[in-house]
Design a protein around this nucleic acid. Structure first.
Length: 418
DNA sequence: TCTGGGGTCCTAGGACCC
DNA sequence: TCTGGGGTCCTAGGACCC
């Protein structure tokens, strides 16, 4: 059966969320920054047209910020996650066949819809804007990759007005010719550079290639991209997201750390968060990896990791922290300016499927009750319990200097109307 | 001085076995 | 002392996504 995919993608998502609750930001240049207010992760159209690229460090654009009075905000992840949920709920009203692809994107299956897809897209767009305040663009195509392409153009073309349908379009070739290879879904910087050397610069050029012929040189993922551009569907809608394979928690420190004690604090704190994520998903882990690193932009970089295997799968934070602290003892180096630490949990399994060991000495029932109690307390109060080993002063904590309020998830921070 | 975080999949190469 | 090949499993690293 023929498929028709629509991709609904929010415009400048983080910036748009901020504008919903602070209309003074409308029509002004706005950027949202990453953790530690490090790099630019979301830009308004005004900022894009100033030539400021995604991912540039903030200190490199200080002059432009002053000159154009760019409004600068820290990331407010709580707000964005809540807005995302509202948008996805709104989209689900239009079809039950929806795949939430990322915080600001969803694929909808529109196969079998009789009326004009463009009109339908406009209706979706209007509704999301009305109900949530966030502008979305909609691209429609016979494969996910073509829907992405349509979306790319819908965002940029004035004529499209936010919606472009490329199913059976007489303008298909023209549309593909507008899209540089590096903007195609699945083609990154490396592959784009290789293609450019071969005089393949647009999606149109790429769609004319024989996928089988270059499969050996470029791999199967690439071959699929080419097929999808040709209208051959390789990726279906995924409505039931596959089980997670890894959980990770990592941060750059607010300031570099030299002492082992502080490094242990940070590692314990991230591990505690990883444990919460495990239990939220009803999972346990068999493998914990800790890594530490100095700044990648300084000389004499040091990166190292250590992995611990658990005899019995666990989601007990005390056990996880013990493993993480032991790893730091092995990884620590003196006179080293640590700038980052991360915890990765692999070999995840649902709690029910766990094999017990004959020689297990831990009281698993007691541990389970303890974790449940701690999670319950933490979910109820705004002041989460902490393990002593996480420290008190925590100088490594991430910095957010320009944070907006949690308008939608915290009673004390509701927007006020004067 | 200041440079994010959380994921997935694929591939090449090594270890090991028969 | 000489000398094979095929299969599987695991891991590290690369590339990509948002």
């Amino acid at each position: 059966m023929n498929r028709i995919f629509a991709l609904a993608d929010c415009n400048n998502f983080y910036v748009s969320c901020e504008r919903v609750f602070n209309p003074r930001l409308e029509k002004k240049p706005v950027v949202v920054l990453s953790n530690n207010d490090g790099i630019v992760v979301s830009r308004s159209n005004e900022v894009k047209s100033l030539g400021i690229k995604m991912g540039v460090p903030i200190f490199e654009i200080e002059d432009l910020i002053k000159k154009h009075n760019i409004q600068v905000l820290s990331s407010n992840y709580t707000l964005y996650a809540d807005m995302s949920n509202r948008i996805m709920e709104t989209l689900s009203m239009f079809t039950p066949d929806i795949e939430v692809y990322s915080i600001d994107e969803a694929f909808l299956d529109l196969a079998g819809f009789k009326k004009s897809l463009t009109e339908y897209g406009q209706e979706v767009r209007k509704t999301v804007k009305q109900w949530t305040g966030v502008p979305v663009s909609i691209g429609i195509g016979k494969t996910k990759t073509l829907a992405k392409i349509a979306n790319y153009i819908a965002k940029r073309s004035e004529k499209a007005n936010g919606v472009l349908d490329l199913t059976d379009s007489p303008y298909m070739d023209k549309a593909l010719a507008q899209v540089p290879v590096e903007k195609i879904w699945g083609i990154g910087r490396r592959t784009a550079a290789k293609l450019n050397k071969m005089q393949i610069t647009t999606a149109f050029d790429l769609s004319k290639i024989d996928a089988e012929k270059i499969r050996d040189k470029f791999g199967i993922v690439f071959a699929r991209v080419v097929c999808e551009l040709q209208g051959i569907c390789c990726y279906d809608l995924e409505q039931n997201p596959p089980a997670k394979k890894s959980i990770s928690v990592s941060r750059m420190f607010g300031e570099p750390i030299e002492s082992k004690e502080k490094l242990i604090e940070a590692a314990a704190s991230y591990t505690s968060r990883a444990g919460e994520k495990l239990r939220e998903g009803g999972l346990s882990t068999g493998l914990l990896t800790v890594y530490v690193a100095t700044s990648q932009f300084k000389q004499d970089t040091y990166f190292n990791s250590h992995t611990v295997k658990f005899e019995v799968y666990t989601n007990d934070t005390t056990e996880l922290i013990r493993a993480a602290v032991g790893s730091i003892e092995k990884l620590y180096r003196q006179n080293c300016q640590f700038k980052r630490c991360g915890i990765i949990l692999n070999e995840l399994a649902a709690q029910q499927q766990i094999q017990n060991s004959l020689f297990d000495t831990a009281d698993r029932q007691k541990s389970k009750r303890l974790m449940e109690t701690i999670d319950k307390i933490n979910n109820k109060t705004g002041m989460p319990l902490r393990w002593a080993v996480e420290g008190i002063t925590q100088p490594w904590q991430v910095k957010f200097k320009k944070l907006s309020k949690r308008y939608t998830t915290c009673w004390r921070e509701l927007p006020e109307v004067a």
